[in-house]
């Protein structure tokens, strides 16, 4: 089977800063994968390379077998990205936003699916509201909805739960878990390690642009005395400081 994501020697420099140092990473279809690392580790940069928001200085990246630069149309159709930044277009309502986003992907009659996403994200009663009038957590949920309008097989979520309240976080994860059970591949970043621990089958840890750990959640947890991912994460971070 073609891997959902295939990254070969991806490197990104910003001037003198090496934000990503030759990353190799393959994620299979159907995985629920976590990309972890402290602030500035390079998580968003790697996601930007995958989505074409940024171009690698070296290496290649593929989504569902499609090269992100050579075959960008198919790569982008295969990918749904929830950006980390809370961005929105103040000119439009929630429904308009989602219809427009569907249109960009070539889909014209998408209201059934849009309604289903809205209901799953508990946004149905806000559908006709202007984006400006939503709370931060609601805007984040619209961002998630936008990433799903074209039913992408691979879904990338860059800190989807930042600023979302506890109850909603639960419903959100249930929804994403269901998407995963339906066959969607999920790649997420989060600073809430318990989320990664309970949801993800595999975890990659980035630090200063280097992929310093890549293993199943199960194996990583074996290294901990208390059985928490947080303990493993902290010790992995220290290991590297020593070496």
């Amino acid at each position: 089977m073609i891997p959902a994501i295939e990254i070969r020697g991806a490197e990104k420099r910003f001037g003198h800063l090496l934000a990503l140092n030759s990353i190799d990473l393959t994620i299979d279809q159907g995985e629920f994968f976590a990309l972890l690392g402290p602030n500035g580790a390079g998580k968003t940069t790697l996601i930007n390379l995958l989505s074409g928001l940024s171009r690698p200085t070296a290496g290649s990246l593929r989504v569902m077998g499609h090269d992100v630069t050579l075959d960008y149309k198919n790569a982008r159709k295969s990918l749904g990205v929830v950006p980390q930044e809370l961005v929105f277009d103040p000119f439009f309502s929630v429904r308009e936003t989602l219809r427009i986003q569907s249109g960009y992907f070539g889909i014209s009659n998408n209201d059934d699916w849009i309604d289903e996403i809205l209901s799953n994200l508990q946004l149905s009663d806000k559908a006709e509201n202007n984006m400006r009038t939503l709370s931060g957590g609601m805007k984040r949920r619209v961002l998630i909805a936008q990433a799903l309008v074209h039913r992408p097989p691979v879904i990338v979520l860059d800190e989807p739960t930042a600023g979302v309240d506890v109850e909603l976080r639960q419903t959100l994860w249930q929804f994403i878990k269901r998407l995963n059970q339906d066959g969607h591949t999920i790649l997420l970043t989060t600073h809430y390690l318990e989320e990664a621990e309970t949801l993800c089958n595999r975890i990659a840890i980035l630090k200063k642009g280097n992929l310093i750990r890549l293993d199943t959640t199960e194996n990583l947890l074996k290294e901990s005395i208390t059985g928490s991912l947080e303990e493993v994460f902290v010790s992995v971070m220290q290991e590297k400081v020593k070496s």
Binding site: S51, G52, L53, R76, V81, D89, Y104, F105, G106
Partner: peptide, 12 residues
Amino acid sequence: TGNLVFILLTPL
């Protein structure tokens, strides 16, 4: 405002 990403992420 950053919302150009919504266009840049698409196959346009």
